[in-house]
Design a binder for these strands. Structure first.
Length: 276
DNA sequence: AACGACGTCAACCGCCTATAC
DNA sequence: CGTATAGGCGGTTGACGTCGT
């Protein structure tokens, strides 16, 4: 744990306290949660002082928003969430907080980390710029369809097809959303061919409609169930509600990782780039 | 068992914007 | 209008855990 001086002055005023940095302790978390429970959030500098925390207001705000806030969703991103991030990033770019607005319970920090550790890693492996048109196109034409394919194929298993719909919510085969009926997400049969992607130029209203139509959750309660619903028949293999982080990793990461090699293959085939 | 490489993610930093005065 | 301050955002860092040798 390190400290920084809030003021260069040598006076012993209230503004000259030693501020803590680094990982938060349980006691600090308790102080912050209790204070916000009683007084609400906002006015962070004052909050930090009144709560008895030797932290900057910014640090308190970050700790609350990214970790302590009750509706923060823990665990790995579901394939559906990954899909939404890819789609939104293609339209919004690195506007993480904006993207996070469409993923209830997920923070901009978490999404940013996902992009940097997973997505940009692939760009590095392929030795192409993650901001390049080539990489964007690879995501749109290869990665997203493959992800959809994996989601759909994993949700159609013989043992459960009889009792459940084979199509996860948001991937309806009937066009019940008129505005984006041509979207890839309504495609009854997902193939590896380049899908029709909604236009990049979407305003907030369009984006809201798009997300509502294809990723049907708009509050934390629905989001809690979304992972369960959207992973569809995975539930027959493991109880989603009982999942630990590691088990969650199985569904999210294995799906993601297993198709990366395929994505690479597609990429090299299509571009003729030399495989590493 | 020990060590290094690598991946993840919480936390910090600096800049920008909104708001109050 | 100009200035000060707080809050928000994206980029970056570093501690820690995991994995492979």
């Amino acid at each position: 744990m390190s400290f920084l001086s809030k003021s260069s002055s040598s006076s012993s005023s209230d503004d000259d306290i030693e501020l803590r940095r680094g990982p938060w302790t349980i006691e600090e978390d308790k102080l912050l949660v209790h204070y916000i429970t009683d007084h609400g959030e906002g006015r962070w500098n004052m909050l930090a002082k009144h709560a008895g925390l030797k932290r900057t207001g910014k640090s308190c705000r970050l700790r609350w928003l990214n970790y302590l806030k009750p509706d923060v969703k823990r665990g790995n991103l579901t394939p559906q969430e990954q899909l939404l991030i890819l789609e939104l990033h293609s339209k919004l770019g690195n506007r993480w907080s904006k993207i996070a607005q469409y993923l209830p319970g997920r923070t901009d920090n978490e999404i940013k980390n996902y992009w940097r550790t997973r997505v940009q890693k692939q760009a590095r492996n392929l030795k192409i710029d993650s901001n390049s048109a080539a990489f964007q196109e690879m995501i749109r034409s290869l990665w997203i369809p493959r992800l959809l394919q994996k989601i759909q194929s994993s949700s159609v298993t013989p043992s459960i097809q009889s009792s459940q719909s084979s199509t996860p919510p948001g991937f309806s085969t009937s066009s019940n959303s008129s505005s984006h009926s041509s979207s890839i997400y309504n495609s009854p049969k997902i193939t590896s061919e380049c899908p029709k992607i909604p236009p990049r130029e979407m305003d907030d209203s369009d984006l809201n409609s798009f997300v509502k139509a294809h990723f049907p959750f708009d509050n934390s309660y629905e989001m809690d169930n979304f992972g369960q619903l959207a992973t569809g028949n995975f539930n027959d293999m493991m109880d989603y509600d009982q999942m630990s982080g590691d088990q969650n990793k199985l569904t999210g990461d294995v799906i993601a990782d297993s198709f990366w090699s395929n994505v690479d293959e597609f990429f090299y085939q299509k571009t003729g780039y030399e495989q590493l």
